Computed example of a mutant assay.
Amino acid sequence: MAPVQVDDRPDAAVVHVRTDIDAGVAAVLRDTLTDAVDRRGHVVLDMAGVDTLAPDGLATLVRAHRRARQRGAWVCLSGPSRFVLTVLHTMKVDGVFPVFDDCAAALDWLHGEGG
């Protein structure tokens, strides 16, 4: 199984990450998120399988967020671990990403106030 998979939906791309986001995965994720933002705008990043987030991974998320916001879209985080939330808070970007317990809640938000 690939560590990063995309579920294209008409209104958003759901990007599933099934491993920790280290330097190697960050490179694949960067390309995937860039493509997803360019094609769909909104992205839900399913992080239920991610325990840790390395600095390269955080930089990848921030870049994707900026790209999406330039297009009037969002990168939402779904199911991030306590460790990932701590990294976001420590680096003072926890308020940047809409965070949800699951993909369905993120997609509902995008259909409502986020979209």
Rank of each mutant, 00 (worst) to 15 (best):
A27I: 08
L33M: 12
R71L: 14
R66T: 12
R40V: 02
D56M: 15
E113D: 13
Q70K: 14
L107R: 12
L110M: 14
V93A: 07
V87H: 04
L29P: 01
T34H: 09
L29F: 00
V87Y: 00
G114M: 11
A73T: 03
R40W: 04
R40E: 05
A13Y: 02
A73Y: 02
D22M: 05
D35G: 13
T90H: 03
A36Y: 01
D94E: 11
V14A: 10
R69C: 08
F97L: 13
A64K: 13
A36D: 01
A54T: 01
H111F: 00
R40I: 03
G72N: 08
R66N: 12
C76M: 12
T86I: 00
A48Q: 14
A13S: 13
L33H: 05
G41C: 10
V28N: 08
P10D: 13
A104K: 13
T34W: 00
D108T: 10
A23F: 09
L77K: 03
F83W: 05
V25M: 05
V87D: 03
V44P: 04
A73G: 05
W74D: 09
L58Y: 02
A59S: 15
R18T: 14
G115K: 12
D8Q: 13
A54R: 06
D22Y: 02
D56F: 09
P3E: 04
V96F: 06
D38M: 07
V96S: 10
M47E: 01
P10N: 11
R9G: 11
L85E: 08
P55I: 11
A54F: 01
W74P: 00
A36L: 04
G115C: 07
Q5K: 15
V93Q: 06
I21Q: 07
G79S: 13
L85A: 07
W109C: 12
I21M: 06
P3M: 13
R66C: 06
A27T: 09
D56K: 14
R30Y: 03
V93L: 08
G112K: 11
M91Q: 11
D94I: 04
A54M: 05
L45S: 07
